[in-house]
C-alpha cells in the first residue's frame, strides 16, 4: 500500500460519515425550509411574521442579557481567583468549574429547585418579605439557567487568559504612576479583550440555540428553539421548523465564526 492510498483510506470514513449524516441532511433542511406554503419566502417570515419576530427578539435579548451578565460575573471572579492566593482557593475554583458539562435539562431542574414553586428562593423570600418569589418558569428562570451554564466555562477562559498576562506590563504601568483603576482599564481589560469577545460569543450562540433548559422549565417560553420544536412536533409545520432552524443555525455559526476571528478558542456549545 502506498502512502497516498493510505492517506485516502484514512480520510474515506470521515468523508462518508460527514457527507451522509451531516452535509446531505443539512442541505435537505435548507431545501425543505423553502418548500412550505410560502416557498423561499419562509426564510423572510422569520423577521416579518410578528410571532416569529417576537420570538427572535426575545431570544436575542435573552442571549444578550446572559452574555453581558456572565462576562461581568466571570471577569470579577476569574480575575480574583487568578490573582489572589488564599486558603480554600482551589476548592472554590473546583466548585465554580464543576458544572462545566451539565446538560441543559439537568440545569433546568436545578433552577426549578432553586427558584421554582417549592424552591429555595421562594422559601427565603417568604421568610423575608412575606411573599413567595417564583422565577423558574419564565424568561427569568431561563436567564438563571443560562447563567448557570455559562459561568463555569467563561471563568475558566478568563482565568487562563489572566494567567498569560505579562506581569511586567502592570509593573511598568505602576512605575509610570498608574493606580489600580487605571491599570485595570488600560492594561488588564484590553489584554483580556480577545478572551472576553471569544467566550462572550460562545455564551451568546449557546444561549440562542439551547433547548434542554427551556424544555424542562416550561413549554410556553417562546424562545426560538422552543418555537422550532413546537412547530415541528405539535403543529407539524415542517417547512417552517426547517426554515427557522436554518436561520438559527446561521446566526449561531456567524457569531462563533466572528469569535474565532478574534483568536478565541471555541468551546462546546451544548445547551
Amino acid at each position: 500500500m502506498t502512502k497516498p492510498t493510505f492517506m485516502r483510506l484514512c480520510l474515506l470514513p470521515l468523508a462518508v460519515v460527514v457527507a451522509a449524516f451531516f452535509v446531505l441532511p443539512m442541505a435537505r433542511l435548507v431545501l425543505i425550509g423553502a418548500t412550505g406554503r410560502h416557498g423561499i419566502a419562509a426564510y423572510a417570515a422569520i423577521v416579518i411574521e410578528p410571532r416569529y419576530a417576537a420570538s427572535l427578539l426575545d431570544t436575542v435579548l435573552l442571549a444578550l442579557a446572559t452574555t453581558v451578565t456572565t462576562l461581568l460575573i466571570a471577569t470579577v471572579s476569574g480575575l480574583f481567583l487568578q490573582r489572589r492566593r488564599f486558603p480554600g482557593r482551589a476548592l472554590l475554583v473546583a466548585m465554580l468549574t464543576l458544572p462545566l458539562a451539565f446538560p441543559g435539562v439537568v440545569i433546568g431542574f436545578l433552577i426549578i429547585l432553586l427558584a421554582g414553586r417549592q424552591g429555595l428562593l421562594g422559601d427565603v423570600t417568604l421568610a423575608l418579605f412575606g411573599h413567595k418569589e417564583v422565577l423558574a418558569y419564565s424568561l427569568a428562570g431561563l436567564f438563571l439557567g443560562y447563567l448557570y451554564f455559562s459561568i463555569p466555562r467563561v471563568i475558566l477562559t478568563i482565568m487562563a487568559a489572566a494567567e498569560k498576562l505579562d506581569p511586567s506590563l502592570e509593573e511598568a504601568a505602576r512605575t509610570l504612576g498608574a493606580g489600580a483603576w487605571a491599570i485595570h482599564r488600560d492594561i488588564i481589560l484590553p489584554a483580556l479583550a480577545p478572551a472576553l469577545i471569544a467566550s462572550g460569543a460562545i455564551v451568546f450562540a449557546t444561549a440562542m440555540g439551547a433547548f434542554g433548559t427551556a424544555f424542562t422549565l416550561a413549554t410556553d417560553i417562546d424562545v426560538l428553539p422552543m418555537l422550532i420544536y413546537t412547530e415541528f412536533t405539535l403543529s407539524a409545520n415542517i417547512a417552517t421548523a426547517a426554515a427557522l432552524s436554518v436561520g438559527l443555525g446561521l446566526v449561531t455559526w456567524a457569531i462563533l465564526a466572528l469569535a474565532r476571528i478574534y483568536g478565541g478558542n471555541t468551546v462546546a456549545a451544548n445547551g
Partner: peptide, 16 residues
Amino acid sequence: PLAIPGLAIALALLLT
C-alpha cells in the same frame, strides 16, 4: 456541528 444547535441537526437527520 459545534456551531449549529443540536435541534437543527436533529431536524435535518429526521427529515432525511
